[in-house]
């Protein structure tokens, strides 16, 4: 596949690949769009309690996620930040003995409501996991799977457009454009993670959840992903769980600090790192514990 051809495909990939039109499309479905105002959070959790087989993992968590910002969740291992992020797209549903109480709103509607369609919900909220987990299929098929099952493309050409556009936005296209048929597993760890990001954005989500996306990557690959997150922030609401305080500081606008299943402190990243109100937060962000 020659480079010229690929450019043409992206150019011809309809309005879905056009960021401006795409934003408007989201605005329609997302209800009132507050600027960066936390009064209109993209997602918000209230009185969220989670337990695994009777063992409590989250206590009474309340947190607002602002639109088109990066929210970082930090805290020591086992503090509940991964549990929290997995509640946001109901990924915890597949864990048998997991009990979830409370409310999580997406654009003001409870995602745990009785009649909520989980499949549709997960289309709106994409997820990138800690360990890169591409399907054991080709690079193309990895990205095309989501659009295919949702019937997003009318024909092969449109599908090509979506796949190439997604790879482009995930910053991977230049590296893989001449081997789209190669297995996704054959890529390096960092490339695999970007492939997973491409796969997530291929179904046009509004929110992307990232559960320690760089913990299995080397510093250079990490830097690539961080750059990518900064770019994606313009179009998506991003929530990232991270162990690296530096990463949280570099990337995020808002930060939440979890400790032993409680959201101890949250606010502007600057504020949380410079002037933490809680002692536990101060100890953690200054490297004294954790």
């Amino acid at each position: 596949m020659g480079p010229v051809l690929v450019e043409e495909m992206i150019a011809g990939s309809t309005d879905l690949a056009n960021p401006v039109l795409f934003k408007e499309h989201r605005a329609l479905s997302a209800g009132p769009r507050g600027d960066t105002d936390i009064d209109y959070p993209k997602m918000s959790a209230r009185e969220l309690n989670v337990s695994y087989g009777g063992k409590a993992a989250l206590h009474d968590v309340a947190l607002d996620i602002p639109r088109n910002k990066v929210t970082a969740l930090i805290g020591p291992s086992g503090c509940g930040k991964s549990t929290f992020i997995r509640c946001l797209n109901r990924m915890n549903d597949i864990i048998d003995n997991c009990r979830i109480e409370g409310v999580v709103d997406l654009d003001g509607e409870n995602i745990y409501a009785q009649d909520r369609d989980v499949v549709q919900l997960r289309t709106r909220i994409g997820m990138v996991f800690q360990k890169p987990n591409p399907f054991p299929k080709s690079i193309f098929e990895n990205v095309a799977y989501g659009p295919k099952i949702h019937g997003m493309a009318r024909d092969r050409e449109e599908l090509n457009g979506i796949v190439l556009g997604s790879l482009e936005r995930a910053g991977l296209l230049d590296e893989v454009r001449d081997r789209l048929d190669a297995p996704g597993i054959s890529l390096s760890g960092g490339q695999q993670q970007r492939l997973c990001i491409a796969r997530a954005i291929a179904v046009r989500p509004e929110v992307i959840l990232m559960d320690e996306p760089c913990s299995a990557l080397d510093p250079i690959a990490t830097e690539r992903i961080e750059e990518l997150i900064m770019e994606l922030k313009a179009q998506y609401t991003i929530i990232i769980v991270t162990h690296s305080m530096h990463q949280a500081r570099r990337l995020s606008d808002k930060t939440g600090f979890f400790h032993m299943g409680r959201l101890v402190e949250h606010g502007d990243t600057e504020e949380v790192f410079e002037n933490p109100r809680d002692d536990r937060t101060r100890d953690y962000v200054t490297g004294r514990t954790g």
Binding site: M91, I94, T123, G126, M127, P134, F135, G146, R199, A202
Partner: peptide, 8 residues
């Protein structure tokens, strides 16, 4: 999980 996360 990967499949569920893209809405399968």
């Amino acid at each position: 999980e990967a499949a569920l996360a893209v809405g399968a």
